[in-house]
Structure formats: C-alpha cells, structure tokens
Nucleic acid binder design. Structure first.
Lengths: 330, 330
DNA sequence: CTGAAAGCGCTTACAG
DNA sequence: CTGAAAGCGCTTACAG
C-alpha cells in the first residue's frame, strides 16, 4: 500500500495539505471540526508525520543528545531515566551516548551528537572546559554536575550534607577521619573534597586524604590497606561505589563497619541500599537533576535566558556508621 | 555566517552539488582528486551532511531504537553500552527508551519509536507477543532475551549453567533446594525455572518453588522468611538482584551465606561482584548479546535473511556457596 | 566520472 | 480559517 502523507490524507478529505499539516503542528489554527476529521482519518490510516521531512522544514530534529561518562556507573541509569522521561513528556527523543569512562573521547562524541540533535545534556563530563565549549559551539547545551563558565548547568550541591556527615561521625566519637578522593578530573570530586577539608579545618579534626582514585569498586578495595594503616575510623568516600569497595577491602582485612569503622558514601545509588548493612550516604535527588536539566535545555533551545540550577543532597544515615570503637587498632 | 551545504561547497569548488553529495554518500563514485578537494573543503568548513535531508531523501534515519524494560536494573546498562558501541561503529545513533518496568507501556513506546528509526532492538520485553508483533509491524526488529515467533532474536541460554549450579550445590551436600522464581511475565524467568525444575526431576532432588517475584531487591528480601521456613539450604534465585535481596533478608534473620545457606544468582551484574562475600552466579555474556543484536538488526535492515542467535551463560563460583550446614535448622 | 533535475514530506510566509 | 507555492538539503535515476 502507498505510504500515507499529508497529501494522501488531504486528497481523501478534500482539504489542502497545508491544513493537514497544521492540524498536527499548529492545531489551534484549524477549525475544530476540520481538525477532528483529519485526526480521525490519520488515526484510521496509522499516520504519523515524517520526522525527517518535518526536521528538514523546521530545522529541528526533535531529539536531544545525552552524553554520560559511564553508563555502567550506577549513578547514571536513574539520571538517564529522568532525562528520558522529561524529554518524552515533550515529545522529544533521547540519543544516548556513553563515553565509556574515557574523558578524552568526549569532545569527539559531542561533535558527532551535535550534528543530529537540537540540544545536548552533558552529564558529569571529564574533558576540559575549553575542549567541551569548543565542540558544543553554538548548540544549546546544559551541563549536569559540573560548572562550566558560559554554559548553563544543574549541579547537586552536597556541601551541606557532607558537613552533616562529618558532624555525624564526630558526634559518634570519631576523632580521625579519612577522605577517599575521587578521580582527579572529576569536578564533583573536587567539590566534595573541598567541603570535607573545609569542615575539618573549621572543627580542627584530623583528616587523612587518600587518592585520587577512579570511581570504581576495585579502587575502593585497593584503598583498604592504607586506610587501616592511617588509623582513621571515620571514612568519607567519594561515592557509593568506592565506599562499597573499601568496605569489601576492609572486610577482607577483618575490619567491619559499623563496629570497627564507620563509612559514608555519596549519591545513594541502588548499591547503597542493597548492601548489608545498608550504606550511610548522601542522597542525591537524581530525578530532579535530570528533570531540571531537560527543563533548562528546553528554555535554551527556545532562545530564552536561563539561570543555572542547584539542587541539594541530604544525609541518609543507615547501617555503616556508628560509635567509634573504644580502642584504637594497632 | 551562512549555513554550509553541499551547494555552498559545490559553488566554492566549481563542481556540482551531486558530486559533493556523492563524495559523502558514495565516495567510490567520485574521482579521487576531486573527492579529496571536497573533503578538505568540507573539513575546513566543519561541514556534515544534514541528517534530516538525507533521511528524507533515502528513507533512512540512521537511528535504531533500543527499548529496555528497566534501565535501573543493573543488567541493562552493560547491554545498552554494547548496543551503543556496535551501533556507533556503524555510524548509527541509538534512541533509548525505558519502559520503567511497565510491560503494558511497551506497545505504545515501540509505536512511538517505530516512526523515527530504521530498526528496533527490544530487550527482554514483557508485553505479549501478539501486542509486540502488532506494533512492530513491518519494521526491522530484533528481540533480546526472549523468543517471539516470527521475529529474529538473540537469547542467552542459561540452562547448562543453571544445571551446573544445581550440581555444584548438590555436590556440596545440599539436599533440599529452593527456586526463587522471577516475574510471571518474564520469558527468561520461565526458562530458568524450567531448567532447574527439569534438573531436580532428573536428580530426584527436592525442590521448593517460591514466587513469582518481581526482579527487585525488596522482593528478594521479602522471600527470606518463607525460605527459612522451607528448610531449603541451596537457593537458586532468578537473578542477582533477587539473590542480593534474599541474602539481605536472610542476614536480618541471622542466616548467613555461605555457612548456613548457599545462594546462586543469575546474570553476573556489577552488584554480584561488589557484594561481600561476592555472589556465586551465572555469568551472561552481556556484551556479546548486545553486539549480536545489532549485527542481526543490521542484516534485517539490509533485507537479508537472518537466523536467531544464542549465547550461553557460564557458572561462576564465588563466595556465597559452600558445604551444606551439618545440622538442619528448626 | 559528472551534472541537471526531480523528488523525498513536511512547514510557513503570503494572500485571500 | 484555508490554500497555493516555495523551500528545507539531501539522494539518485537518467543522460552524457
């Protein structure tokens, strides 16, 4: 059977193709009874406007790109879902690209995406600001969990929650804390380290800094040995995966949370809830992060002025933190 | 500055637009020196063919759709990555859609996707075969981890590995096994249950079946109580998430793996490796699954005849299985 | 190997 | 509120 287009519907109904087109793109411009006849006929024939043709005519693709640094990191699936949902509600599709934890590949990936989308959500990029801005060029883009001069963004600020976490540890008698730093090129890692450092300064609490580490389970595991040697009993890990790793490494050395040490993660990914005991961590409003990113992007695409947004993490106390042990090890 | 098209490049170089077009779409048809001049100029101007225009002319979008039932289930991120990588290698983009664990939404989502892609990878769908086939219509599609009459697919067969797991438990002295069944509408769940059931029949081993459960951590947790009451010491869970949940629930009841019970998961997702102790499970070649799906889809799109593919899981013994306890509880 | 021209299926400024 | 027509930027059958 012949492909159904605005022309075939128009002919069938004795109206012009323009009117059929308007019934879909600007329904308010079409008299309601005409519009209804058109919609009924379209429905009957299973018609949907050809996206390529529409795109060619309007210059819009109806697609946004979403670049994530590592889809297998449990932080990102919920973000992807939130972005996808928000985009879907606007009838725009999401072209997903995974940088496979390779920051240097990001500029190339952004460039490829840029040619086929109306806008870009770039989550937690690792590449340099300059490289990123260069490839983004004039394309509408919003950055998630990083601030880049000149690009709108939405970040999760965990400063307050991390300070609360540190307070929580101190109140439980932990007098020596350790910070497991995240990747050197991660903006979030820098911010988190800074928050903890500042807190320690203010409270004159001894803080051991370890890392930088990659945000991987194995890197957390590898940190267990030095951690034990450091004598710190309160541990703030860059993220949940690293917290999970360090707990695993510590368990192997016979050191257990919350009795021997207390461990706090960050993000509150699925993993944090499935561990036994469940992880004390900073809960990030990931859904909101994704939703706000799409809202912002929509505004940028529409040419409106936008303000970067900020959401906040909150401390969630679970099973991996508790009173400091009475005696020091060693 | 004016937008760069095949026309602007053609004018610049004193050739026809057709030739510029061919330099990109059918380079073999253009004399090499001409082609090189065109490419150099395009490069200089940052030109890339307009996808919408190309799509309108060819009827191809250069996009495939990927429908996953639940992106937050840790099985899918690695699959998404594999599909995305294989697609990227063919210069096709991936439009990701998440059904958010709602099987009844799948037909609608497929229908929406269908309008904007050249083909579809449908992963572990929950909707009925009839509904799925109806919405897929004539669109090239390949199904992952489910067989649907008339649609090509690539499945992971875990039969052998699950039998090996059951053997492993029996060899360790477990005389009563429990099977935690997965979702009722999950094809994989049915297959896995069947494999275990058949093994138990053949070996005259007592098998307690529990479920169906949703493939969620909490559902696994909720199963702990009945499991303990059943007296089974060897547990085969539908997937890793459920295994993880049941371990958590059991721990709360003072029952621990591998000393009191042995637990086997399925899939070998990230979670399985980050648990302490690490989970004995069936390792699925997820990357291969994704890669094969894209290969198959490419062939279908090209109009070639294809054969459904099958890959196999293998048993990976880790820390949650061991000798059956000497005395029965209760 | 190259060019002129038609066509892909929409949108939208313009005229009515 | 509706229609005729031009245009979006490619591809490709056809002719040379």
């Amino acid at each position: 059977m012949a492909r159904v287009t605005i022309y075939s519907i128009a002919r069938e109904l004795g109206v012009s193709a323009s009117t059929v087109s308007r019934a879909f793109s600007r329904p308010d411009l079409v008299r309601s009874d005409v519009r209804e006849r058109i919609m009924a006929e379209a429905d009957r024939l299973g018609y949907a406007p050809n996206r390529a043709a529409r795109g060619l005519a309007t210059g819009r693709t109806g697609l946004i790109g979403l670049l994530v640094p590592d889809i297998t990191n449990p932080f990102f699936p919920p973000l992807v879902r939130a972005v996808e949902q928000a985009a879907g509600a606007r009838d725009v599709g999401v072209l997903l690209v995974d940088a496979e934890a390779n920051g240097r590949a990001e500029p190339r990936l952004v460039r490829q995406l840029a040619a086929q989308v109306d806008g870009l959500v770039v989550a937690s990029p690792r590449a340099s600001s300059a490289a990123l801005k260069d490839v983004v060029g004039g394309l509408p883009a919003v950055v998630v969990n990083r601030t880049i001069q000149g690009l709108p963004g939405v970040v999760c600020d965990n400063t307050g929650a991390l300070r609360a976490a540190a307070d929580h540890l101190r109140e439980h008698g932990h007098t020596k804390l350790a910070l497991l730093r995240g990747p050197a090129d991660s903006w979030a890692a820098g911010r988190r380290a800074q928050a903890v450092r500042r807190w320690a300064d203010e409270h004159e609490v001894e803080l051991v800094e370890l890392g930088p580490f990659e945000a991987q389970f194995e890197d957390g595991r590898a940190a267990a040995r030095v951690l034990v040697d450091s004598g710190a009993t309160g541990i703030l890990a860059f993220d949940d995966l690293m917290a999970c790793g360090v707990l695993s490494g510590l368990a192997e050395l016979g050191v257990h949370a919350p009795v021997d040490v207390s461990v706090v993660g960050c993000d509150d990914v699925l993993l944090a809830r499935t561990m036994t005991p469940a992880l004390t961590t900073v809960t990030a409003p990931i859904d909101e992060l994704g939703r706000r990113a799409v809202e912002l992007l929509e505004q940028v695409v529409a040419g409106e002025a936008v303000r970067s947004a900020r959401v906040e993490g909150v401390l969630t106390v679970r099973g991996t933190t508790g009173p400091a042990p009475r005696r020091r090890r060693g």
